[in-house]
Design a protein around this nucleic acid. Structure first.
Length: 852
DNA sequence: CTCCGAGTAGTTTTT
DNA sequence: CTACTCGGAG
């Protein structure tokens, strides 16, 4: 048989996976084993060779980005098109299904989606209302308990019955109120999207049937990251035809703390007795040393399916380990190594720096800035998480769904309209006594002369009008958004503040409107749209079957207040004229990261290890390889083995991102939360075989694997001995163990100081001992003269240092673009950048900035 | 109602 | 150390 896809380019295991199109299939895909290729080839094969119609296919991914990538690869494999194929995340799929049949659950199709921040706020409000002390019952604890209950399909009542602790009892009460409010607001949080879909599929056989019949072939990527509800949904959808393919790697399960359940993948063979299992163990990504290190580390986990990646590629370069004196030195060393790589022809785009926690990015960022290494940060505080942007979004959400109490309350007094918490409370009472939505109560309040002052009533009237006018806006999405923002008066309010910060916020809002305009353009194409069969038929897509007779449902079991309130509002304020607005809101709610927005400029990538999953880079740095940081404090101490294993999987993920070069760094001392601590080197580094790794920096290779080091590790004396004693000026003098066991390390110091090896004890006086402190924070690395050179070169040169900056000066930064100086303090200047809106403190002369 | 200061918490995160 | 939240004073 001649295949439309190049089946010969696959290895036997991959080929088997691609050709197994019928029945349940579990693909255990190790890191870098070509799993995306298998996934896309398999689908392309089905469509091009086996006559499966694109609309019969459902491919679920974990992130929007992965979905977009897959769609792209599929459309290049399938020139005849992929229209009707659903390639999306679980959440996007659920939203699509819920929009269509929300009325069966007592919601309207216009329901709002509450993201994490919204959900947090509402829980906080509820806890306040129920006077539950946040001190005693931390909000995140309550939220995770509720989330766990939701995902176990346990309702508030049942949770209350089962509550075995005061925490759970309180959580159940919050849960009950949360449900009530979400329903009343016609809103769903991220958990609800999944849970309600499962509810829909379970309670409505005709709906389930519709999708079971349509989606004959289902594949789920990153199966190890699915939670219980997602697992149920997938199984339900596939229950009829059993053509379910799941792809995953138990070694890369790093989201259990978020409800991901590894047992989903481990138990697949039990769920489907006749499941075929294919293991993809050949790695096409990394070189030998890197792969060997990854294998060695992950082998320390007990809870895993045994597999071992192998590669046909050569050993490649050894992993470079570097012990820095402190976190600043670490950043500097990484910067200088990046410089070397770049000089050697590696583009910045091929380099990534990973860290365990976002907090670590600061110092690294700072050091890169000074060294002139261009970087971009993935994750962290994102554009769409900025308060002012969220405010705009809340206005838009409110216009789309005025019952959305959360959004209404968020912006009712932003910008200031003189409506404070007492007025809001009164409106709440009004809403309760009139049994109407909060928003309708706002309107009632305008007429209530007795209850509110004229000032408040005027403010409310303005506010209510925003919705009235907003809903009438038709035409271009961009214009509608602009009109709503305009009538909200946000930009004007910021502009009149006159501060640089407010100006930045105003600019962010402008930028947001640019995003909206962009969305309208890119939204035109049908690609990526999840169409129903009806829509496909209407669009003239051939051989789409007749739908099952429409389920005429007079008996909506939930005559819910949400639906009533929503339709009430529809009647009162008229239908929403701008149809693109809900689509924009949905896209915003389910957005992944804004990597599309960050330009294509050449820069290294900085991100947490979690966000690095699924990516690969020719050169990878992992910073902060220290006990307490990675594995993070929560994971060690012994008692929680499962947590430690997850940290180890995280290490596995980090290591396996690297194709050719891997650098692991750790610092002898590190400032965290203001105090300095000395952390021993990460146990994960010790799990890497000696032949795969090379140590350098203070206390280099001769140390590894010697007995004393392990003894030191436990007490943390290794780090503190090297680090703090060094600063105390007693590097070699009193540190007897190091003189005995560390020839290589001493050697490196010796060559640095130019002291003969045999004389080092006498030669280094306490006074001279301070020098290492200089070396630690000054030059990059003792042994290689060259290494320190790049940093050295970036010393403030005369011209740069002489440049005078004044507040208000326009400047341009190599990485951050244009900005304005907002303060000057000696050699430090603070600059606000236009693009990011962020302010940064920069060192005059070091930072790559020029006055415009 | 707003503003300012003290106090405190402080993994990982896509949807 | 810092960013954010809460509570009290104006």
């Amino acid at each position: 048989m001649a295949y439309a896809v190049d089946i010969d380019s696959l290895n036997p295991a991959q080929r088997e996976a691609v050709l197994t199109t019928e029945g349940p299939l579990l693909v255990l895909a190790g890191a870098g084993s070509g799993k995306t290729r298998v996934l896309t080839f398999r689908i392309a094969h089905m469509v091009a060779d086996l006559g499966v119609r694109p609309w019969q296919l459902l491919a679920i991914t974990f992130t929007n980005k992965a979905a977009a990538e897959m769609r792209e690869r599929l459309s290049s494999l399938l020139p005849e098109g992929t229209r009707g194929m659903w390639v999306c995340t679980f959440h996007a799929m659920c939203v699509r299904m819920l929009r269509e049949d929300a009325d069966l659950l007592g919601y309207t199709g216009q329901f709002s989606i509450y993201d994490d921040d919204d959900s947090r706020r509402i829980v906080r409000d509820i806890m306040q209302a129920l006077s539950i002390e946040q001190k005693q019952y931390p909000i995140n604890m309550i939220r995770s308990k509720i989330s766990a209950a939701k995902n176990a399909m346990i309702g508030p009542d049942e949770m209350s019955d089962r509550a075995s602790s005061p925490q759970e009892e309180k959580a159940a009460r919050v849960y009950a109120e949360l449900e009530r409010r979400l329903r009343a607001a016609n809103a769903m949080d991220f958990d609800d999207l999944l849970v309600r879909t499962l509810e829909l599929l379970r309670s409505r056989p005709e709906v389930l049937e519709k999708y079971q019949e349509r989606f004959r072939y289902i594949s789920v990527d990153e199966y190890q990251d699915t939670n219980h509800v997602q697992y149920e949904i997938a199984n339900l959808l596939a229950a009829k035809y059993k053509n379910l393919m799941v792809v995953g790697d138990d070694d890369q399960s790093i989201y259990s703390w978020r409800g991901a359940d590894i047992s989903n993948i481990l138990d697949f063979e039990q769920d489907f007795a006749d499941a075929k299992v294919v293991k993809l163990e050949q790695n096409y990504r990394s070189t030998g040393h890197i792969l060997s290190a990854a294998n060695a580390v992950v082998r320390h986990n007990s809870q895993r399916k045994d597999k071992r990646l192998f590669t046909a590629a050569g050993d490649g370069e050894k992993i470079q380990a570097y012990q820095a004196s402190d976190e600043r030195d670490e950043g500097r060393w990484i910067a200088s190594e990046i410089d070397k790589l770049h000089d050697g022809g590696t583009p910045y785009d091929d380099i990534a720096v990973f860290y365990r926690t976002n907090a670590q990015s600061r110092i690294l960022e700072d050091m890169f800035l000074r060294a002139g290494v261009p970087y971009k940060i993935v994750g962290g505080t994102r554009f769409f998480d900025r308060a002012e942007v969220r405010d705009v979004m809340a206005y838009l959400k409110m216009v789309v769904n005025p019952a959305d109490e959360m959004s209404v309350k968020r912006v009712i007094n932003t910008p200031r309209r003189g409506i404070g918490s007492t007025s809001i409370q009164k409106i709440e009472m009004l809403a309760a006594s009139n049994r109407c939505s909060f928003f309708q109560a706002c309107e009632l309040a305008c007429a209530e002369t007795g209850m509110f002052s004229a000032k408040v009533r005027n403010g409310l009237a303005d506010f209510v009008n925003i919705v009235r006018r907003g809903r009438r806006m038709d035409g271009e999405l961009k214009d509608a958004v602009e009109a709503i923002v305009e009538s909200a008066g946000l930009v004007q309010a910021y502009r009149s503040e006159g501060t640089m910060e407010a100006e930045g916020r105003a600019e962010n809002i402008q930028e947001f409107m640019g995003v909206a305009a962009e969305f309208e353009e890119s939204h035109e194409d049908i690609e990526g749209t999840l169409e129903s069969l009806e829509e496909l038929r209407a669009a003239g897509v051939g051989d789409v079957p007749q739908p099952a007779p429409a389920s005429t449902l007079a008996d909506t079991p939930f005559a819910s207040s949400a639906a009533q309130a929503a339709s009430e509002i529809e009647r009162t304020y008229g239908p929403l004229a701008c149809k693109a607005l809900p689509a924009l809101m949905e896209w915003l709610a389910l957005r992944s990261d804004l990597d599309a927005l960050s330009g294509q400029s050449s820069a290294i990538t900085m991100m947490t290890i979690h966000s690095a999953k699924g990516l690969e880079f020719p050169a990878v740095f992992v910073a902060g390889m220290e006990e307490g940081i990675f594995p993070h404090v929560a994971g060690f101490g012994g008692e929680d083995a499962a947590k430690l294993e997850e940290e180890r999987r995280l290490a596995y993920v980090a290591i396996t991102r690297a194709r050719k070069r891997l650098f692991l760094t750790y610092a002898a001392t590190r400032r965290t939360y203001g105090s300095t601590q000395a952390n021993p080197r990460s146990r994960f580094m010790n799990e890497i075989p000696d032949e795969d790794i090379e140590f350098s920096g203070i206390g280099s290779s001769g140390f590894s694997g010697t007995g004393w080091e392990k003894r030191g590790d436990r007490r943390g004396t290794f780090g503190s001995g090297q680090g703090s004693d060094m600063y105390g000026g007693r590097v070699f003098g009193s540190y007897t163990r190091s003189t005995g066991g560390s020839g290589a390390s001493a050697g490196s110091y010796d060559s640095f100081f130019g002291v003969a090896g045999t004389e080092r004890h006498r030669g280094v006086s306490p006074d001279a001992g301070r020098k290492p402190a200089t070396f630690g924070s000054g030059a990059a690395r003792p042994r290689q003269q060259k290494a320190s050179a790049p940093v050295e070169q970036r010393r403030p040169d005369a011209a740069r240092a002489a440049e005078v900056f004044a507040v208000g000066d326009a400047v341009s930064h190599k990485t951050f673009g244009a900005g304005t100086v907002i303060s000057v303090d000696g050699d430090m200047i603070e600059v606000q950048f236009e693009k990011s809106g962020k302010t940064k403190k920069l060192m005059k002369g070091f930072a790559p900035i020029v006055k415009l």
